[in-house]
Nucleic acid binder design. Structure first.
Lengths: 156, 156
DNA sequence: CAACGTGGTTTCATTATGAAACCACGCCAG
DNA sequence: CTGGCGTGGTTTCATAATGAAACCACGTTG
């Protein structure tokens, strides 16, 4: 197997994050971090993943600035993994993914984990895609344009 | 390399979709499908990916119900790949991912592809996570609960 | 008929995955 | 003090997955 392609230099905001989360485990680690897990062993127990894989993924997430390590909160000589602001910024991605999955990947008869509002216990409201002036947008109402960097006014 | 773990039976809506999109290329194919690409060669040219990899990914996305094949729109004997409703349902996931990426993975000086409102050319509004009754929610305002299937009222 | 375009499939060498064994370190109980 | 336990890894091993490139099948066109 040759090396997986990196999208590090991609100018597309869909491509670039894939170096961080485009594998089978990283989003699950991030999900667990949102759920309060912090210790290597906690993640490992929750995910049932091989320790070498978990170690590699945790290290990549730290390197990508999504998680950081802090001294253990119980005073033991260990480290814990916590979300950075950048990591917390992934919350809407997880919400969107949850909503898609609940809609299309689960039957009504199936048990599933649900994200709810802590105060009321109600499911989080369905995400809406809107324009800057508030119109609801479908995919066909949108398009991709290239936005040049603010230091670079050249035309190609 | 032993076989990658499938999350097919997972009761978590973050885990389950990873069989469909938890790799380095599938979200990029879906992005391109939203952008109107339909032919094998178009995807291949856009992504610069090996044909065997592209073929495998397209086939998986068809199998997962995200893409379907239709006769080519130009009357040639070929097939095209188009998003299903289920595939179109991934739009908010892509929007969320774009917004996170633009916020955290790009410098102001960098050129990037932008998703805009076709009518006005304005960027799509920032996604908001809200409760059912309209309160803005941070990750700490939410929690995970298990929801049992509607055919299954047993308590564990 | 040969060349070209399209959509793959096959071959090959390398990397990534997951299972399991092994290691390092600190702590605690006997 | 020593052995066992818990924790957080690292290493080893066999297999699957990746990407590059060659090859193949088919339809169309000059």
């Amino acid at each position: 197997m040759v090396k997986r392609t990196s999208h590090k230099g991609a100018n597309c905001p869909v491509a670039r994050p894939l170096d961080a989360i485009g594998d089978g485990w990283s989003l699950l680690i991030i999900r667990d971090a949102f759920d309060g897990l912090r210790r290597f062993g906690q993640f490992q127990k929750s995910l049932g993943v091989a320790k070498n894989i978990l170690s590699a993924r945790l290290n990549n997430l730290v390197e990508q600035g999504i998680l950081r390590t802090v001294p253990a909160s119980d005073g033991s000589p260990h480290q814990e993994y916590v979300l950075t602001d950048k990591g917390c910024g992934l919350f809407p991605v997880l919400v969107a993914l949850r909503q898609w999955s609940e809609e299309y990947l689960f039957e009504p008869s199936e048990t599933r984990a649900r994200l709810v509002d802590r105060e009321r216990g109600q499911p989080v409201a369905w995400l809406e895609i809107r324009s800057a002036d508030g119109r609801a947008l479908s995919p066909e109402d949108t398009m991709i344009v290239m936005q040049h960097g603010s230091n670079n006014a050249r035309r190609l």
